[in-house]
Write a protein that binds this DNA or RNA. Structure first.
Lengths: 234, 234
DNA sequence: GTCTATAATTTGATAGAC
DNA sequence: GTCTATCAAATTATAGAC
């Protein structure tokens, strides 16, 4: 069956070229500027050909979302193996935000455009039954549970609630950068670190080495802690 | 000059009708569905007439943004006079989130569509020289400074950074509701409260009456605090 | 599989009559 | 001030030749 396989392989190649061109357009001009004609021009095929590989523009968009989400996951992967749960979470979320600001149009397409797109991205990367969204959610929730078990988070903290809130915080940081660059803004890293501190705060318990200084809010008296925080934007 | 005044008044009336119709379309179908023709049909005028009152579609969008932002500010106003800075901030941000989820298309138009729109909204409501964005920012930053002065926030907390981070957090909560309704989600109020607690946390110092129980994260040992948190979504 | 050609819409915006 | 009529340009999507 070599002939049939070559044909499907060639078909696959063109599919990839279509997605490549689409990705370039989206990254350069944003999703709103993505049209079938523009894609066709870019790959030097007729618009009609696109419909042999994708049902419509929406299917191309969904494919791009799956790609983009996979790319995001890939950028998080190096940090998943960090032993300490707090450091793991901080590294993951820093990478998450970095991805968002470095690939604004991709991030926007996946998370800020159509509610169905992120759903498509999640369902696509299904592993062991449940989708990639669930898996990512668990990843964070489990780390929070670890911290709770170590007494580094309040026992009253619901890890599901905190996961959602933590995600919302980081998403908000990215989203504001993308659509509301209005204020004389704080460097990105400074805001991210402040947020991570607020949520994961003083995580030096059980680590012994007091790596993260307890830059924690006070309960009774004002602490003598004084820490300037210069930081570089992305 | 009664005649001229009547004419400008009548002109103003039509301008309002255009904006009314536009607002309805945006609220019902979203900003993407707002077209000059649709507006003209709604008010039973010809499309050409619209151009006598607005230069183009973008100017209508900006006008809607100014309206929407003013509406948001209005919904925050009742809480600005709360004496306690922590309670004030919490009330303000709860109202902010509530506005966002109750007016999704308006919120989306102002904060999630075009970067220039939110700028227009801010500059429009200029008071005493600086724009409404600056004013709102100060509002939050000042409250944070109050809390800091009372020793209820760490002295190391930069109120400008925290303001931006706090805004990002609340914006993220709203934005995720609008564009990523994917998970079996936590009730809105629960997430908002968790976030407010994480940022403003145990604020019972100096209030005497211990109104807010110290649902704070631990530093050394696990606290006996146990608090179930049932809450209603909006 | 790929193309040409085109249908069918929808869009923002304007010229000129009244 | 308002309308009719229309332009010029996009868009998605398809029919049918090759």
């Amino acid at each position: 069956m070599g002939i049939a396989e070559r044909k499907t392989r060639e078909k696959q190649v063109l599919r990839e070229r279509i997605l490549d061109a689409s990705r370039r357009i989206v990254m350069r001009e944003g999703f709103a500027a993505l049209s079938m004609r523009k894609i066709a021009d870019a790959i030097e095929y007729s618009p009609a050909t696109l419909y042999l590989h994708f049902e419509n523009r929406d299917e191309i968009a969904r494919a791009l979302c799956m790609e983009g989400y996979a790319q995001l996951l890939e950028s998080l992967k190096p940090h998943l193996s960090i032993a300490d749960p707090a450091e793991r979470l901080k590294a993951i979320w820093r990478a998450y935000v970095a991805f968002g600001v470095e690939h604004p149009q991709t991030y926007r397409l996946v998370f800020m455009e159509d509610p169905t797109y992120v759903g498509a991205a999640f369902e696509s990367a299904a592993q062991d039954g449940d989708d990639a969204g669930e898996a990512a959610f668990r990843l964070v929730a489990d780390a929070l549970d670890e911290m709770k078990a170590q007494g580094r988070l309040p026992a009253s903290a619901d890890s599901n609630v905190w996961t959602e809130a933590l995600w919302a915080t980081m998403h908000g940081i990215v989203a504001l950068r993308l659509t509301c660059p209005v204020f004389p803004r704080t460097p990105l890293d400074t805001v991210v670190d402040a947020a991570l501190d607020a949520w994961l705060g003083d995580c030096s318990a059980h680590t012994g080495k007091a790596a993260t200084p307890p830059r924690k809010r006070v309960t009774r008296a004002a602490p003598p802690a004084k820490k300037a925080k210069p930081s570089s934007s992305s």
